[in-house]
Amino acid sequence: MTGNNENQNSKPIVSLSGLTIGFDSKNPLVQVPDLKIYPGEIVAITGASGVGKTTLLRTIAGLVSPITGTLEVCNSILPKLPPRGSVGYIPQRLGLVRHASVKHNVMMGARAGHTNPHTITPSAESLSRTEDAIERMGLTDKIDEPIRRLSGGQQRRVATARSLAQSPRLIMADEFLSELDEETLNSVLFEVTEYVRSTQAALIVVEHDVSRAKSMADRMLVIDDGRVNPFLSETTALEVNL
């Protein structure tokens, strides 16, 4: 199962083989026979509610251990976790610190990517990345605002800014475009795809909206009946191979 990206000759950022995931070994949630995601590639995961899209994402992020199989992310083979700052994860519930400011939240990402873990003060690089990411997400006027005072859409932009400030090799986003109006959605999507293409990072996005998934992704993975299929049908395959 591989994409049609021109970077298929380079080393994949994510490589899964014989992966079985879930919480019960006798009743696994999803099986992924083989999957490689290459630099510069955008992959959308779709499927009905409760099929295990989020669990698959959490497994790749190193938050859930797989039942069987091998998983390599950013040159680290599980159980070794990917290097600090190399994975940016936007959970479905965003994972923002609600009582802290926009700047604080985005800074957490910038720290992971650009500051030594043993220093208390953030590096100059972290500070500039934070301000840059906030500006790109159009949140400069909200920089000192606590997250709990922001709208759902604004909070999604903060979570995206946090990942961009981190400069990760892999961004994983769980329905990060929901609750955004059309204009903001296009601008957020543009910034993220621009980042992925220009830095040769990879983006895995869980998306309910199939048409939106098709429009943004190079490849679409459909979780169907507990297995990851590259495409549901030939027609779909033709549509999603951009």
Binding site: P82, G95, A100, R111, A112, P117
Partner: peptide, 25 residues
């Protein structure tokens, strides 16, 4: 759990998680 998930996947240290996520949250 979500802020900790995000912090864990970013690779933040325990000190950073405590000071930057757990205490403010």
């Amino acid at each position: 759990k979500a802020p900790l998930d995000a912090a864990n996947s970013m690779g933040l240290s325990k000190f950073e998680k405590s000071l930057g996520v757990v205490i403010p949250e």
